[in-house]
């Protein structure tokens, strides 16, 4: 993956008149900018499920993947902790059913283990232009709104400042037997998100949530990219 292919993915989506990328596409763009994302494959046919699942390795997460669906959880399109071929096939069938009518396939994804979840994003402010966001992830993003923003471009010091600015900043330290999060990687992710905002005028909003902390490494487990 390189920036050229990121450009192509977005270009094609725009040509098709779409207002969003699918999770799979969004993560390819992110990966092109050096953000760590989950290992995953898009599966169209039931016959490919087992082979793909074994290639990535259990436990897995299976998700409905469509540019038409922004928030998957509410639609029952996420099946987590899939541990066998049987479970994988069952999940595949249910997701296919749930996708009914929408353009989409099933995303077979490694299940990242980690008790800490962060969120990142990018939005365009009417006055200040592209701004990146950092905060607590998962359901806490909406519940606590413990987040910080920065106008881009961002240097490393500012990226580290915005990470430290949230009230719950101790979540990235050594806590309850968990390692300290690699803030170099976190900072770089925020810087790169800002770069996407600057380089693609057509990307209106980005949500990365959750960004799961595995050991000390953040990994983007879900991504949403809105186009304009």
């Amino acid at each position: 993956m390189n920036k050229g292919s990121a450009f192509q993915i977005i270009e094609i989506a725009l040509k098709e008149g779409r207002s969003a990328l699918s999770e799979y596409e969004a993560k390819q763009v992110l990966a092109a900018y050096g953000l760590p994302v989950t290992r995953e494959c898009l599966v169209e046919n039931r016959g490919d499920v087992e082979k793909t699942a074994r290639k990535i390795g259990y436990p897995l997460v299976l998700k409905g993947c469509s540019f038409e669906i922004a928030h998957k959880t509410e639609k029952g399109l996420i099946h987590a902790d899939i541990r066998s071929d049987t479970e994988a096939l069952e999940a595949f069938d249910e997701i296919k059913k749930g996708l009914n009518g929408y353009n989409g396939a099933v995303l077979v994804q490694e299940m990242v283990k980690g008790r800490r979840e962060l969120a990142m994003g990018m939005t365009r402010d009417d006055q200040f232009g592209p701004c990146v966001m950092f905060g607590l992830g998962g359901i806490f993003t909406e519940v606590l709104k413990d987040i910080s923003f920065r106008k881009v471009p961002l240097n490393k010091r500012e990226a580290l400042n915005m990470i430290r600015e949230i009230k719950g900043n101790r979540i990235i330290d050594v806590i309850r037997g968990m390692e300290a999060v690699d803030t170099e990687i976190l900072a770089n992710m925020l810087i790169q998100l800002g770069r996407i905002g600057l380089e693609f005028e057509c990307v209106r909003e980005i949500d990365l949530n959750p960004v799961i902390i595995s050991g000390k490494n953040p990994i983007v487990a879900d991504a949403l990219m809105i186009l304009q």
Binding site: A20, T123, M133, T141, E142, I147, E205, I206, L224
Partner: peptide, 8 residues
């Protein structure tokens, strides 16, 4: 649409 934008 995104949470980032709605909170921003």
């Amino acid at each position: 649409i995104s949470h980032t934008a709605s909170m921003g």
